[in-house]
Amino acid sequence: MSNKNELITADDETSDSDFISRLKRPFIDFNNADRSGRVDILGRLGLFIPAVASTLIIVLVLAFLWVESATIFGDPSGGIGIIINPTWDPNRDMYGIAVFIVGSLMCTGLAIGIAVPLGIGGAIFLSEFCPMRLRQPIKMIVEMMAAIPSIVYGLWAFLVLVPVVKNNIAPIFGSDSNGLSLLAGGIILAIMLLPTVVTISNDALQTVPRSLREASLALGATQSETSRKIVLSAALPGVGAAVVLSLGRAVGETMAVLMVTGNSLQIPYSLFDPTYVMTSIITNQLGYAFVFPLWRSALFAVGLILLIMSICFTLTAKLFIKWGMKTRGYI
């Protein structure tokens, strides 16, 4: 009887307590089940294995990062202090990673500073003012921008943007930079973030009920007043989530930033100084470092910090979404 099996499933879903007995139960009934009942049991098992495997891989990534970086945090020459120590010199067993953290934060800050105002403006344009005929093509271009591989952006930035910074922008400010700089990194990063900011903010603006816009217009507000004071404020949680998510992308971006920031072990004091970001140090040195336990572990520690940042961003984005659901009922 196939409905016998059905009963079991229903039962399953009400008693959550004993995980082991839940796993065992289908097998006990396997012999009693008819053909479709057996397929059902096998199918369930066939799905259970991938579920465990994919969960396991997720856990593995986290575990390996932790285990690999534990060495440096447990070592007397390392310890938790490396995150505020600015000296990175593997030859002398000094693994301060503050330079990279500061470099990443500055580069990201610059990129966010450029991308967020532009991106939100673009999203407002797309959602509120864009002529119908242009909306789809623009959305498509923005989505395609998100799909362009980071190495292609890197190639463009390295061959076009860096010379522009060197020849056209730096001289204005009296700098003789060679173009490989914080500024170049910030600009290319901003370009790569814009699609994320525009797309997610646009989605958030679109979920704002039409009736709110109409209520504002019916009070005599202009369209721009409505979009700034009502639509944007109503979509604020979603826009906040967009910003946080793009922050996560910015900190983790590797190839394009690596190619244009100059990778010099110093904290940049001007926009035209070179800098070294967290992802770049892993990319550049893991190949040599893997036979030296401390050096390698320090690089994994950088990876772990990237992971922790990523967790913070994900959590913040979730908070924004929760806030939106609570105060607005939509996101």
Binding site: L212, E214, A215, L217, A218, L219, G220, I230, S233
Partner: peptide, 17 residues
Amino acid sequence: DLRKHIGMVFQKPNPFP
């Protein structure tokens, strides 16, 4: 200016957030 002189109430309550 017209809309300022003609108020409107909608089908579903739609207070601003």
